[in-house]
Simulated scan of single mutants.
Amino acid sequence: MTGGPMGIFKNLSESAGLVNDMADRLDVDLTHIGGLDAESSAIAYRSVVMSCAACKQHENCRHLLDDNAKLNDAPGYCRNRHVMHRP
């Protein structure tokens, strides 16, 4: 990753936005992603955001999310497909 610390923060912020928007489009509730324990859920959420941050498909993902109010499934390239499934 390039751009120094500010580039890292921008990437993490963008990734958190993509994660939240993907969950919204799929009606996935990330509130208790790690169980009922708030700390475990925070750790699990951080892991999902970090996984997204390592993805090279941010532009494609953003276009997909911007073009669709709802989705039936996360795209095949999504590193968090195991989390992003409809109930």
Rank of each mutant, 00 (worst) to 15 (best):
N20H: 10
V28F: 05
S41A: 04
C55H: 04
L64A: 05
H82N: 15
L12A: 04
N80M: 09
N11R: 15
A42T: 05
K10T: 11
L18C: 03
H63D: 11
A54V: 07
M50C: 05
A69M: 12
M6K: 15
R86Y: 13
N68P: 07
V19H: 07
D37F: 01
D21G: 08
N60V: 00
M22S: 06
C55W: 07
A74G: 07
I8L: 12
A54G: 14
M22Y: 05
M1Q: 10
I33V: 15
K70P: 02
R81E: 13
H32R: 08
T31Y: 01
Y45L: 15
L65P: 01
D24Y: 09
L12R: 07
A54D: 15
I43Q: 03
D27R: 08
H58Q: 09
A44I: 00
E39Y: 01
S13L: 03
N11P: 00
F9M: 09
N20L: 14
A16G: 09
D37W: 00
S47D: 14
R79P: 10
G17E: 14
T31R: 07
H82W: 12
M1C: 09
Y45E: 03
R46D: 12
D27Y: 06
L71G: 04
L30S: 02
L71H: 06
S13E: 07
G35L: 01
G4Y: 12
I43T: 10
A23Y: 11
A69W: 12
